[in-house]
Design a protein around this nucleic acid. Structure first.
Length: 901
RNA sequence: GGGCGGAUAGCUCAGUCGGUUAGAGCGCAUCUCUUACAAAGAUGAGGUCGCAGGUUCGAGUCCUGUUCCGCCCA
């Protein structure tokens, strides 16, 4: 037999990399039923997840750690259940983020992207991608991710670019894509349009400026107007008042003069104007405010753009041309003050739109961009959730989903960037028509002219990630993968990208494949620090998952994230918790060491059929119950609770009780030792299987040793069906109906536990030295047989002297002097001469009795109330039994008290 | 303005068919290096489950209102 000697402490650093490499090399990450291989069975339903693709040049953060842990858990669970399982990995080109990184690199060389030109820039970006693109996927492997790396995709690779082309052209041909000047959100820092979602509004202290819009008739009268952005006066094309506002009704239809510029603009009436805001007069700047834009359209006003792409004032700003928008704000106000046009200023809390990426104020501007007509797609996406084809977990996000899709605006998909999928549209220099094509054209489709030029813009990154669940499987080509693995099963991601990504995948999935891209959306929460604060570099509370893994191991981090979370709720991560879970891995490791040692001690084969002890049966019943719970919880997506229960079983039941008892049973030798070792190995094996999806490394490593030791020992220690090649491809325990004996076993053992705890408690209270074996008398009544059979267990765990441990049905004469106690109707006497203080004992017993009587009173009252008639009989019966036990306890306590006199 | 979430032990959180004196980890106190584990073991202290109503035989759990904190949308 090979000598197996495991280190005393689990050394994850010596395990993780080796195990992962072995898994990958063995092909365990690949689907068990591959449509591209012989013997494929199309009737078996697969379980599929497409990874939320991280930024290709990004670095691992806790958000990644969260989704990888969660998805790997689901994947490993299904794989172990025998379901053909595929997890498609990949990365996203992340247009803006990556472009900014490349620009930063250029800046270090003193270059800008304009200096080197588009072609060179894109070349550099690819270079960057090739250099740093592997980092994030290596880090994801580090987390134990069991994805099929041979199917890894990148949004800018050839196949996915083809998918993007196809999608764009199809939408265009259906008339669902259009180009035109619209009001969009412009990021002056990035010099590109951004979508509504990429704008964040922050409440900031600003100023409300009141000034005079002088009438053009020379009367000297004016309309007082208030604005937070005086520079936009330059683009004003009307002043609006409420039609019923008595203060200004007489001005409607007249002209007023734009300050400084001297342009004449009309006074219009519109009920949109809020009479109570400011002075009640509203300046209208249709080209630089979304609300004014609509007013402008309603009233046919002039749209005057006053800023360029850097948000500097353009030639329409007269004397202010060339100035920065905020500089202009100061200057124009100063000039107006000098001209006597100002009234007053006051502090004002305003909502400032800021770029989600760069942070600078977004400028609403009119710009020619490409848009997707979203209405019909949004309706289809709504329907898919309404009719249950897609389920969202937790359910409360359904409402958020509805609300967003019901109020959706057309999606601006063009970006003025260089890194991304270039818009497949060519403009003809001769006829001016557009050619939209799946393959790059050389001539205009309308006039045949070769003088065509491609649109310089690229598509929003989310346009390509919206295709992800099917583009990664080969769409638009009808590949075997697409046919078998699509639709995917679960889309798992953080709730913060529900709108950005999830809704778009659903819309595009339905549009292009006619099917929902997944049947379930599982949303996890955001990771915060241990006090619920958002992690940020400026606060200095950022936790680096790599560092955590270096210090405590991957399993500890994974278990913390998985068990510390409930669906959709944020997770406060503390290193203390990770540490506790590292300790758990170590605990498991040491249970393993013990079991392996036990196996060595035990005989190779039994002589006869097993005679199970109560603890043997108990741990088995507990395990069966655990398997049922885990099954139920997994089906309900209650992964955290499942993990907690497994943890409690392993530590609280298996290690704390069964392992301790097993030591004694092993010492008996013979068949008892054999069947104990057998139980230990079976329970450990099952525990490792249950735990594996949470903490894959330590379980796999330990299971390997267990398997090796069991196989070396004898065939008798094999699980049903034999040992699989690896734990990660071993069968997950299946629940079975509870058997007759289980409930009684659990009850009996619970009584044993109570007795042991009762004695331990008294020992501590009386300061009996922990190692001193003391005598005890246990008066059991009806339970005599059950308890007597556990004498050795009680003696062992309560540190009693077996020779002086007496079990009685009833007792004529109480031991005296003795410390006594009643536990669940069972009397305990610890004859400890010298430790018994009568007064003290009396006080203690009276306290116990008072407690028992309180319980009796409470239960009698309860059972005499309508509870007895209205509650289910089983519930009532349970309370009746409790009452009986308390009554017996009280009676025996009274007897003990009398004996003390 | 609309919507959602949270409020449970000193801290961080579980508690998803409502079942009758509420659980975990960490922290705290006392004791123990007992040959799986001191990253451990034993024992203990600690909570009127935000507040006010209601439904029910029974509410941390369901309903209404309310306070505070956080988030999303406009």
């Amino acid at each position: 037999m090979p000598e197996i000697s495991l280190p005393k402490t689990y050394d994850f650093s010596a395990v993780e990399e080796r195990i992962y490499a072995w898994w990958e090399k063995s092909g365990f990450f690949k689907p068990s039923n591959d449509p591209n291989k012989p013997g494929f069975d199309p009737s078996r339903k697969p379980f599929v997840i497409s990874i939320p693709p991280p930024n290709v040049t990004g670095e691992l953060h806790l958000g990644h750690a969260m989704f990888v842990s969660m998805e790997d858990l689901m994947i490993r669970y299904h794989r172990m259940k025998g379901v053909p399982t595929l997890w498609v990995p990949g990365t996203d080109h992340a247009g803006i983020a990556t472009q900014l990184q490349v620009e930063k690199m250029l800046a270090r060389e003193g270059l800008t992207r304009d200096q080197i030109g588009r072609e060179e820039f894109v070349r550099r970006a690819w270079e960057w991608k090739n250099k740093y693109g592997g980092i994030i996927t290596r880090q994801i492997r580090r987390l134990g991710a069991s994805c099929d790396w041979e199917r890894e995709r990148f949004t800018l690779d050839e196949g996915l670019s083809k998918a993007v082309r196809e999608a764009f052209v199809r939408l265009y041909e259906k008339g669902m894509i259009y180009r035109g000047p619209r009001m969009i959100n412009w990021s002056p820092g990035l010099r590109t349009a951004v979508s509504d979602l990429e704008v964040e509004y922050s409440q900031e202290q600003g100023t409300l400026y009141y000034f005079k819009y002088m009438l053009a008739d020379g009367s000297g009268e004016y309309i007082p107007v208030a604005t937070t952005r005086p520079e936009t006066i330059l683009g004003d094309s009307a002043v609006a008042v409420h039609p019923e506002d008595e203060r200004y009704q007489r001005f409607i239809g007249k002209k007023v003069i734009v300050p400084i510029l001297g342009r004449e603009i009309p006074v219009i009436a519109d009920p949109y104007v809020d009479r109570s805001f400011g002075s009640g007069g509203l300046k209208v700047t249709p080209a630089h405010d979304p609300n004014d834009y609509q007013l402008g359209q309603r009233h046919g006003l002039e749209f005057i753009s006053i800023m360029d792409e850097a948000a500097r004032i353009n030639q329409n700003g007269g004397p202010y041309a060339g100035m920065d928008r905020f500089e202009c704000r100061k200057k124009i106000w100063a000039d107006m003050e000098a001209a006597g046009l100002t009234i007053k200023t006051e502090p004002y809390m305003m909502s400032v739109p800021r770029s989600q990426r760069g942070g600078e104020p977004i400028e609403p501007m009119i710009s020619t961009q490409w848009f997707v007509r979203i209405q019909s797609m949004a309706e289809a996406a709504l329907e898919a959730v309404r009719d249950g084809r897609i389920k969202i977990i937790p359910e409360r996000f359904v409402k958020v989903y509805y609300n967003w899709l019901e109020n959706i605006q057309d999606w601006c998909i063009s970006r003025q960037l260089w890194w991304g999928h270039r818009i497949p549209v060519w403009y003809c220099g001769d006829c001016g028509e557009m050619t939209v094509s799946r393959v790059d054209p050389t001539r205009c489709a309308h006039c045949g002219s070769p003088r065509i030029e491609q649109d310089p813009d690229v598509l929003d990154t989310w346009f390509s990630s919206g295709l992800w669940p099917f583009s990664t499987l080969g769409w638009p080509d009808p590949t075997p993968d697409l046919a078998y693995f699509y639709p995917t099963s679960v889309l798992e991601t953080g709730y913060d990208i529900l709108f950005f990504w999830v809704t778009r995948m659903i819309m595009m999935g339905l549009e292009f494949t006619g099917q929902v891209p997944f049947h379930t959306v599982y949303l996890h929460g955001l990771i915060r620090d241990e006090h619920g604060q958002k992690m940020s570099k400026s606060k200095g509370n950022v936790v680096d998952p790599l560092e955590v893994m270096n210090q405590m191991g991957t399993d500890a981090l994974r278990f913390t994230l998985l068990v510390g979370s409930t669906p959709g709720n944020d997770v406060n991560l503390s290193l203390k918790k990770v540490e506790a879970n590292r300790n758990f891995a170590n605990k498991l490791w040491n249970i393993g060491r013990f079991v392996l040692g036990a196996l060595e001690q035990a005989p190779d084969t039994p002589l006869r059929e097993p005679i199970w002890t109560l603890p043997d049966s108990w741990i088995w019943a507990r395990l069966q119950d655990l398997v049922r719970q885990v099954d139920r919880l997994f089906n309900a997506y209650q992964y955290g609770e499942a993990g907690r229960q497994i943890y409690e079983f392993i530590w609280g039941d298996f290690a704390d009780w069964y392992v301790e008892i097993a030591k004694q049973q092993l010492a008996e030798g013979g068949d008892r030792a054999f069947w104990t070792a057998y139980t230990l190995t079976r329970v450990l094996d099952m525990s490792l299987r249950l735990l594996h999806p949470f903490t894959p490394f330590v379980t796999e490593e330990l299971w390997g040793y267990l398997k090796q030791a069991c196989m070396a020992k004898s065939i008798a220690f094999s699980p049903r069906g034999g040992w699989e090649e690896a734990l990660m491809v071993a069968h997950f325990p299946e629940p079975r109906e509870p058997e007759e004996w289980e409930a009684q076993t659990l009850e009996d053992f619970a009584l044993v536990q109570e007795i042991i705890r009762g004695i331990r408690n008294l020992r501590t209270e009386k300061k009996v030295p922990p190692s001193r074996r003391i005598p005890a008398v246990i008066v059991c009544g009806e339970r005599l047989d059950v308890l007597k059979a556990q004498a050795a267990v009680v003696a062992h765990l309560a540190v009693l002297d077996p020779a002086q441990l007496i079990f009685e049905h009833t007792l004529e004469e109480k031991p005296n002097p003795a410390i006594s106690l009643v536990v669940a109707g069972v009397e305990l006497y610890l004859p400890l001469a010298g430790l018994v203080d009568r007064d003290e004992e009396r006080a203690r017993l009276e306290k116990e009795l008072a407690e028992a009587q309180g319980q009796i009173e409470r239960l009698e009252k309860l059972l005499n109330s309508s509870f007895a008639e209205k509650a289910p009989p089983a519930v009532v019966e349970k309370e009746r039994q409790k009452l009986a036990v308390w009554q017996e306890t009280a009676a025996r306590l009274k007897g003990q008290l009398e004996a003390l006199l």
